[in-house]
């Protein structure tokens, strides 16, 4: 009964606006650094500062055993992708509401907004990653081993998860403004359910103490656990991807597909809610 005649598919529409995506992403990046003193350095300062704090706590106050890898490298390697995860979700969830003026006046595929936020954080990720390489050189750890070939796969999987959650969160946030607060809270807690400040072996040994090793796989229902562990395995231990990663990959892609579907279903009501 109601049709808006357009002979492009949804993805076709999005690709037709790829220049807008580029422009909007660069707008976010430029605007963020335009008025700050540190500018691009923030991309490094954040993970670094966190890593330093955690290092101070977990080498001086509580001993955390991370094997041959110095704790600071251990935590930084996890914090860089974790901050990509946390920050791109936080900003993409708010992206629609923050640009309500535009959304209510001009037509363009709305997913450009959350995607651009993720894209802008990728820039930070790359900068922080370069510093990681610097760290590894400094500590005499081998860099660019063969296993690094898996890095793009891990990153893409993570991006699927991030975009999926971003789509769901941003769309719901338009109607229920609490959603962004809830997500921020969940993200904070989520960090402790993921092996960022502690190694996965700690989880294993704790479960062993209680005779619950068979529930180990439950820990990996959290896709970020496998993703972060895979980053570490690939970068620090020259290992490949294990079965937990592939489960995480399936979960991430499913979240992306569901998230995009939900977003597009709710899209046309965005402009009616101000």
């Amino acid at each position: 009964m109601t049709t808006y005649s357009s002979n492009k598919t949804q993805l076709g529409q999005l690709m037709a606006h790829k220049d807008l995506l580029i422009s909007w992403t660069s707008r976010i990046v430029k605007a963020r650094y335009q008025q700050s003193v540190l500018g691009g350095l923030w991309a490094v300062v954040q993970p670094l500062a966190l890593a330093l704090i955690f290092t101070a706590v977990f080498t001086l106050v509580i001993r955390m055993d991370t094997g041959e890898i110095p704790y600071i490298v251990f935590s930084y390697t996890a914090l860089v992708p974790w901050l990509l995860f946390e920050q791109s979700i936080s900003s993409s969830v708010l992206s629609l509401v923050a640009n309500m003026g535009l959304v209510s006046k001009i037509y363009f595929p709305r997913e450009v907004l959350p995607i651009a936020e993720v894209g802008a954080r990728l820039v930070d990720f790359v900068i922080a990653f370069v510093v990681l390489i610097g760290f590894m050189v400094f500590y005499g750890l081998p860099v660019f081993t063969l296993s690094w070939i898996y890095l793009p796969i891990i990153l893409i999987t993570q991006l699927c998860l991030v975009l999926g959650i971003g789509f769901i969160g941003s769309a719901l946030n338009v109607f229920f403004r609490d959603v962004s607060h809830v997500i921020v809270l969940i993200l904070k807690i989520w960090m402790y359910a993921t092996p960022i400040i502690y190694p996965v072996t700690l989880v294993q040994s704790q479960l062993q103490n209680f005779g619950l090793e068979r529930f180990y796989w439950l820990y990996f229902l959290n896709p970020m656990s496998a993703i972060i562990e895979s980053y570490r395995n690939v970068i620090l231990h020259n290992e490949g991807l294990n079965e937990f990663f592939w489960i995480a990959a399936i979960i991430s892609v499913t979240v992306l597909m569901f998230g995009y579907w939900l977003f597009k279903r709710l899209e046309f009501r965005f402009a009616d809610v101000v």
Binding site: I22, S23, S26, K30, G101, F108
Partner: peptide, 26 residues
């Protein structure tokens, strides 16, 4: 659609950068 002039303009970006921004939005 011209429903608002300068839609998407970011105040900190230059006119040149905003031309690209607004142009792609349109």
């Amino acid at each position: 659609a011209l429903i608002e002039l300068g839609a998407g303009f970011h105040p900190d970006l230059t006119g040149r950068e905003n031309v690209y921004l607004n142009g792609t939005i349109l």
